[in-house]
Structure formats: structure tokens, C-alpha cells
């Protein structure tokens, strides 16, 4: 390796830093900065209990953002997250009302409902060639309509099963919340799928140029369909976990997860145009967003201020490193 061409600073940096994506590095730097600012406000921001609690809260967003990332890597977007989350939570709780078999099947049933929403999205995008932004908005509206009809417009009375509560709030390994373990497992599976399987290669290929991927013999439509189904399923699973955390489902519980999941993926350096991004970046984005939300709420910022700061921070960070290349 020629030290002269790389130049002074970059050449002396350790190898892993040189190879790292500047966006991921920036995101982690922002996490450190946020923790530092928080610790100036109160010392408890650096305590292990607080950090573990944040990680636990982050894992719900992390599960949902994993599915979102898969779809964004394809160059698409999934705006059906809000009601996929709510549908997963409500249907899992609803199944729990049907005896012991219902209790046993509650979690798979909730996830399956999300997969069904995802499959409708996938068929629309892959086979009918409808822009993903539009078809996912439409399925979101349909899922909302179905849930409103089912629940009668009120929060359902069914409560979460013990298994759901255990997954969201229990401890299998002392000190590490189950939700964090689940996120780690899903994350590991995602990393494996993206980097070591032909499916992952195909996802990146389609994100770069679907036409080229198609001509290379990839069944691009099937891959897109699967990706949307996975995204719907993970959103619903996030909803199941959230229902376990709150021990019941609520009408608009998913609304708070659409913008954060997109923001987490994009802040983590994944290109919204598709084809570029790493899961490590998404992890950084999820933690960053969760910390930001937590610090704003600890400071007792009212909802209005939170929304404003939130939007401004996202635009500012995107302007820092999410810009499209200057064409021409």
C-alpha cells in the first residue's frame, strides 16, 4: 500500500477506520456527543441502568428499522409501517382471546398479519409496478380501515399474552433484557443475509440498477416481493413486542415509528436511492434516534418542541452527509 498517495492523516489511521463509511462514523460520533451533552445535564445519563434501558427501548425501533432498511436498500420505501405495527399488535392480542391454542399461536398470527400486508405491498411494487410510496400508503389505509372496523374505533380490550410480555420485558440472561437479545438475533440474521447470501447480493444489485440485475438472471420481482413481506413481518413483530411491553395494543401505536424508522436507516448512511448501506449504520441510527428522543423527554421538552428539534436534526444530518451527488 503506497503511503504517499493516501496522504498524511488518512494514511496513519488504522485500517478499520479508513475503510469505514463516513456516515456511520458520523452517526457514532453524534451518539457520543449526545451522551456527553446528556451527562452535562445529569450524571445518570452514563449509568449502566440508563444505557441498558435505552438499548431496550431502542430494540423495538431496531426490529422495525431492520425491515425498513431491507426495503430502502432496494430503492423502495415502506410507508405501511404504522398500521403494520398496530395490526401485528392487535391481531396477536386478539388471538390470545381464543383459548390456549390462541395463546400459543398469538405471536405467529400477529407476525403473519404483517407478512400479509407486506405481500400486498410486494405484489403491487414488483408485479404491478406501482410506485412503492403509493401502494404502501394505500395498504396502510386499508389496514387502518380493517383495524377500525375490527376494534370499533376503540383500543381493543384484549391484553398481551405472557409470552409476549416475556419477550419484551423479561430477562433470560441476567442484566440483558430479552428485547435486546431479540434485536441482536434479528440483526445478526440480517447481516448474514445481506453479506453472505445470494439474496443479499440480489438486494444490493436491484437497489443499484434493477434492469441490470434482471439481465444477470435474478428474478428481481420475487426478491422485491420477499423483501416487502419480510419488512411487513418485522414491523408486525415490532408491534407484538410493543404490545408485550405495554401489555396491550392501542389504536395509533404505530404512528410514532414511521418517521423514526426511515430516519434511523437514512441517518445510518443507507442511501434512500438504494443499493448502498450497512446494517451497522442502521444500528447507529436507531441508537442515535432513541437517545435523542430520550434526552428531549428527560429535559421535559413539550411535544411541539420535540417534533421541531426532531425534524431539524434529521434535515441537518441529511444535509451533512445524505445529499445526492452534484450531477453535471
Amino acid at each position: 500500500m503506497s503511503e504517499t498517495t493516501l496522504g498524511g492523516l488518512a494514511g496513519r489511521m488504522p485500517k478499520f477506520l479508513r475503510r469505514a463509511d463516513p456516515a456511520v462514523v458520523t452517526a457514532f460520533a453524534c451518539i457520543v456527543l449526545l451522551l456527553f451533552l446528556g451527562s452535562l445535564y445529569s450524571r445518570s445519563f452514563l449509568s449502566p441502568e440508563y444505557l441498558l434501558q435505552q438499548l431496550k427501548v431502542a430494540s423495538f425501533l431496531g426490529v422495525i428499522a431492520t425491515g425498513m432498511m431491507l426495503v430502502i436498500l432496494l430503492g423502495q420505501i415502506d410507508l405501511s409501517v404504522p398500521w403494520a405495527v398496530a395490526a401485528g399488535a392487535m391481531m396477536a392480542c386478539a388471538a390470545a382471546a381464543y383459548g390456549s391454542a390462541g395463546v400459543a399461536l398469538a405471536i405467529p398470527f400477529g407476525v403473519l398479519c404483517g407478512v400479509a400486508i407486506g405481500i400486498v405491498n410486494g405484489i403491487g411494487v414488483a408485479y404491478l409496478r406501482i410506485p412503492s410510496m403509493i401502494i404502501t400508503l394505500a395498504t396502510n389505509a386499508v389496514a387502518q380501515g380493517l383495524m377500525v372496523v375490527y376494534t370499533g374505533g376503540f383500543s381493543p380490550q384484549d391484553s398481551a399474552t405472557a409470552a409476549m410480555r416475556y419477550l419484551a420485558t423479561g430477562f433470560t440472561i441476567p442484566g440483558v433484557p430479552n428485547a435486546v437479545i431479540i434485536w441482536a438475533l434479528i440483526g445478526a440474521a440480517m447481516v448474514f443475509m445481506l453479506t453472505r447470501s445470494s439474496f443479499g447480493r440480489a438486494v444490493y444489485g436491484i437497489g443499484n440498477r434493477e434492469r441490470a440485475a434482471y439481465l444477470s438472471g435474478i428474478d428481481t420481482r420475487r426478491i422485491v416481493l420477499i423483501a416487502f413481506a419480510v419488512s411487513g413481518g418485522l414491523s408486525a413483530f415490532g408491534g407484538v413486542l410493543l404490545a408485550g411491553y405495554a401489555s396491550k395494543a392501542a389504536q395509533s401505536m404505530g404512528d410514532a415509528y414511521l418517521l423514526p424508522s426511515i430516519a434511523a436507516v437514512v441517518l445510518g448512511g443507507t442511501s434512500i436511492l438504494g443499493g448502498r448501506g450497512s446494517y451497522l449504520g442502521t444500528v447507529a441510527g436507531v441508537i442515535l434516534i432513541t437517545l435523542l428522543q430520550s434526552i428531549l423527554s428527560v429535559m421535559q421538552m413539550p411535544e411541539a418542541g420535540r417534533q421541531i428539534i426532531y425534524g431539524v436534526v434529521i434535515v441537518a444530518m441529511l444535509l451533512l452527509y445524505g445529499r445526492a451527488p452534484a450531477s453535471r
Partner: peptide, 14 residues
């Protein structure tokens, strides 16, 4: 030079 989807979701929050 930001993507309209993400940018307008964020400004919408503001």
C-alpha cells in the same frame, strides 16, 4: 439535493 420523501417527512414534523 435531498430526496423529497425524507426531506418533506422531516419538514412536516417541524
Amino acid at each position: 439535493r435531498l430526496q423529497p420523501i425524507v426531506a418533506t417527512i422531516a419538514t412536516g414534523a417541524v
